[in-house]
Simulated assay, not measured.
Amino acid sequence: MCLAIPGEVVEILDEHPDLVKVDVSGVRRTINVGLLADEGVRRGDWVLIHVGFALSKIDEEEARATLEFLETLGKAYQDEMDALLDSEID
């Protein structure tokens, strides 16, 4: 099963306007926010991430509730976190 997982934007990569660093439960990764170009993603925003791409912006309350729910899924959540740990966008 593939899930979308919330992450908080912690850094905008100036040299690559479509890339940002996000924090997902303590894991930091670079993701692509090109699909949200019209929404103006900024540091502190929460985004819903799937396979290295931000699919939508969400508010912090929804992000935290989603993370709490995902943690209850056990293996599916752990599989998604493992995939995030193994991912890398340069």
Results as ranks from 00 to 15, higher is better:
1 M>L: 13
2 C>D: 15
2 C>Q: 13
4 A>S: 13
5 I>K: 02
6 P>A: 09
6 P>R: 04
7 G>Y: 02
8 E>H: 09
8 E>Q: 15
9 V>G: 01
10 V>E: 05
12 I>W: 06
12 I>Q: 09
13 L>H: 12
13 L>K: 12
14 D>P: 12
17 P>I: 04
18 D>E: 13
18 D>I: 03
20 V>A: 14
20 V>K: 10
21 K>W: 08
21 K>S: 08
22 V>Q: 03
22 V>S: 03
23 D>K: 01
25 S>F: 11
25 S>P: 00
25 S>W: 10
25 S>T: 06
26 G>D: 00
30 T>I: 11
32 N>T: 02
32 N>M: 04
32 N>F: 03
32 N>P: 01
34 G>M: 06
34 G>N: 09
35 L>P: 01
35 L>G: 04
36 L>D: 04
36 L>N: 04
37 A>H: 11
37 A>Y: 12
38 D>K: 14
40 G>F: 11
40 G>H: 03
40 G>C: 07
41 V>E: 01
42 R>V: 05
43 R>W: 04
43 R>S: 07
44 G>H: 09
44 G>M: 04
45 D>H: 03
45 D>F: 00
47 V>C: 01
48 L>Y: 05
48 L>C: 11
50 H>L: 14
50 H>C: 13
53 F>D: 15
53 F>P: 06
53 F>Y: 13
54 A>P: 07
56 S>N: 11
56 S>I: 03
57 K>C: 07
57 K>H: 08
57 K>D: 12
57 K>W: 06
58 I>F: 06
58 I>M: 14
59 D>H: 09
59 D>Q: 03
61 E>Q: 12
62 E>L: 06
62 E>N: 03
62 E>Q: 06
63 A>T: 00
63 A>M: 09
65 A>C: 05
65 A>V: 02
66 T>R: 14
67 L>D: 04
67 L>K: 01
69 F>S: 09
70 L>C: 00
73 L>Q: 05
76 A>P: 05
77 Y>H: 10
77 Y>N: 02
78 Q>E: 14
78 Q>C: 02
78 Q>R: 15
79 D>M: 11
80 E>V: 04
80 E>G: 03
80 E>A: 15
83 A>W: 01
83 A>N: 04
86 D>C: 06
86 D>G: 14
86 D>Y: 10
86 D>T: 05
87 S>F: 15
87 S>H: 11
87 S>E: 15
87 S>T: 09
88 E>C: 13
88 E>N: 12
88 E>G: 12
89 I>R: 13
89 I>D: 08
89 I>C: 07
89 I>E: 10
90 D>Q: 12
